[in-house]
Every structure is written in structure tokens, then in C-alpha cells.
Simulated assay, not measured.
Amino acid sequence: MFNKKTIKDIDVKGKKVLVRVDFNVPIKNGVVGDDTRIRGALPTIQYLLDQGAAVILCSHLGRPKGTADLSFSLKPVAEYLQKLVPNKVFFSPDCINEPAEKAAAALNPGEILVLENTRFYAGEEKNDMELAQKLANLADLFVNDAFGTAHRAHASTEGVTHFKPGVAGFLLEKEIQYLSSAIENPKRPFIAILGGAKISDKIGVIKNLLNKADKVLIGGGMANTFFKAQGFEMADSLVQDEALETAKEILSSASSKLVLPVDLVIADAFDNNAAVKEIPVSNIPAGWRVLDIGPATISAYSKLVADAGTVVWNGPMGVFEMANFAKGTFGVAKAVADSNAISIIGGGDSVAAIQESGLADKVTHISTGGGASLEMLEGLILPGVAALEDK
């Protein structure tokens, strides 16, 4: 299933190993919020330490736009990591050059060094080979365990493999295995649920999944564009007019596989305290907008999910940040958690919804990478994975 070498295929004893992790976590006032991604990297880090390696961790955090903006520093993450592991954790105030070189040279087996944000250099996102070589020079081997950035060919994900042999960590391997088996060899019926605001973000995904899945259930703002393509007046609802032709194309070729909402929750303002109505799918009155799927849709989608063998869900069903328009998203979350299907959740909002609903432990796999999981669902090759050594 996974044809790339992993950390189990190499000898790391006494070696310095550069590990690309995804420590792009929320930090407020220097305090780490959701630590899911940090904990997700622990099995790989711990395995390498147990095997006698010195572990050097690199990651990006936020969008500092190629400048050393310390509000995006990884220092709080290094301090947080120290609370999770018994091993000594050091921090380098630069990811390359003398501070990093000195700290890496002094690192002993069983110790961890966290490098400063790779995106403090503009060359990171440009896959600059000079930056990649400086990162690679810090270690003997490279491990990619950052599924969340595997769809990007950056200096710390793809570039380093030009200078040091690269293999996969456990998290990357697990993500690829779950997603590829769901797409290529799903237990049927295979139900895909796609939400979110824009069709344009997910055109390739919708088209690919219509070939693979038994049903593709649509919710969120993207459903509005399909309704407008069918001739409904959508008033103040979010609609992607530039995607209407694509929506028409998908509708004409999708037959009965594409399932749209049958009722909607509409409001007279984009506000949790707005006046609210539940209506069947029809023309939306002037001044009103669609903000969630309705109860009949939740029920219909839940029935399809209940009988599924595999469920992949990416994107919310409505504006779930507002309590009055969260019923659709949380209803789908409950249906997925209650089903006996192999369930895979990807995308920040769907992951947040399943965690907020307290059902995260009832789904098979929560993906750490929204963009990367979408590209896999689209059938694309991820550059950060393609660059690793084949088995």
C-alpha cells in the first residue's frame, strides 16, 4: 500500500536525523492552543530517540512572509514539547547558519533540537536549493512526518531530499495509508461528504470522487452555487458566480451520485441573532441568505452515512461558528461518529467540529492536513511524498 521507505527501514543509531514536522499550531500570547499536531509527531520522535538518534526538528508556523517575525516563533512549541517528553529539548533561534550549525553539532543521541521557523526565510516557500542544502547539512538523514505540508514542494519538504536520503515518519505513513485505501479500495458503500464555501477549491475533488464514491453529499456555501446553476434565486447567499458553468457541467454528468440538500436554514443577516427560517430548497427571498442545511437534509444524509462502509468528510455544512447555524455540521458529525464505517475526517473546520462535538474518539482517522488530504482525494501526487526513497 505504502511504497516509500519509512524510519523502520533505516539504521539511525548514532545518527543526526532532520525531521520535518508540522508544528503549525495555534499560539496565543505565547501559549500553545490545540496540540494535536505536536502529539501526532511524538511516535516518530520517540522511536528515533529510542533507536539512538539525535533528533533535529524543523517546521513552519503561520505566515511570517519570509521575515523573522518573532510573533511566529517556534520557541513556545519547543517549550511545550519539553513538557511532553522526558528527553532534553534544545531550541535554536535560527533554522540555518551558525546558531543552528553549532546546536546541531553539539546535539547528543537521545536529545532533541527544535529549529526556528523555516518560513523566516523567503526561500522556504520558493524551494530554494541553498536553504535546502543548509538544512540538510545539519543532519545525516531526513525524515518527512509533516503530512500537512506534503502537498507543497518547499525547501524543508522536497528540497532537502536533493542532498540527503529521505524517508517517511509514522504519521505521514498513516495518513497516506488511510486516505489511499479509502480512495482506491474502499469498503462500500463509499460516501463522501464535501462542504465549505467554494466549489472552486474542490472542483478536482468532486470530479475525482464522483468516479470513486457511491454518493457525494454536498453542503455548505458550495451547495448554493449548485442551486443557482439549477436556476434558483439565491438572494444574499454566498454564490461563486464564476463557477456556475462548472457546477452545471458537474450536475449534468453526475447522475444520481451527487446529492444536494433538500431543505435549508436561511437568515435575514449574517448574524447569530438574525431572524431564521427553515425552508425547502426554493427561491430565497430578497435580503435573506442560506447559512446551513435543514433538518430533512440532516436526516437524509445521516441515513446514507449509517449504511456506509467508508465515509470521507471534508468541510462544514454551514456557518458552524455561529450556534444557530451549526446544527447541520454537528448533525453530520454525529452521524459519522455513530456509523460503523471507516471514517476519515480532513480539513480544519470538519476536524474542529468533530472535536467540539466530543466525538473525535469515535472516528477512525482525523487527518492533520487539510490541503494535503484534499489533493489526495483529488488523486494528485504529493511532492513531499514523491521525493522520499522508494522501498
Rank of each mutant, 00 (worst) to 15 (best):
V19E: 08
R20G: 03
V31D: 06
R37P: 04
Y47C: 05
L48N: 06
D50P: 04
Q51K: 15
A54E: 13
A54G: 11
K65C: 13
S73D: 09
P76F: 10
L81I: 13
K83Y: 07
S92W: 07
P93E: 13
C95H: 03
C95W: 03
N97Y: 13
E101F: 12
K102T: 13
A103Q: 08
A106V: 10
E111C: 12
N117P: 15
A122P: 14
G123R: 07
Q133P: 08
A136T: 04
D145H: 04
F147H: 05
A150H: 03
H151V: 11
H151I: 10
S156K: 14
S156G: 09
G169E: 11
L172T: 04
K174Q: 09
I176S: 13
Q177P: 07
S181W: 12
G195I: 02
G196H: 03
G196M: 05
G196Y: 00
G204Y: 10
G204T: 12
D214H: 08
V216A: 03
A235M: 11
L238F: 14
A243V: 06
A243K: 03
L251V: 05
S252I: 07
S253Y: 09
S253E: 13
S256G: 14
V259H: 00
P261N: 01
A269P: 15
A274I: 11
P280R: 06
N283P: 02
N283R: 06
L291S: 01
A296V: 01
T297H: 01
S299K: 15
G315I: 00
M317G: 00
M322Q: 09
M322S: 07
A323Q: 09
N324T: 10
G331R: 00
V332S: 00
A335S: 10
A341N: 01
D349G: 07
S350P: 03
V351E: 12
A360T: 09
H365N: 05
I366N: 14
L374C: 09
E375A: 15
E375V: 06
L377Y: 00
L382C: 08
P383G: 05
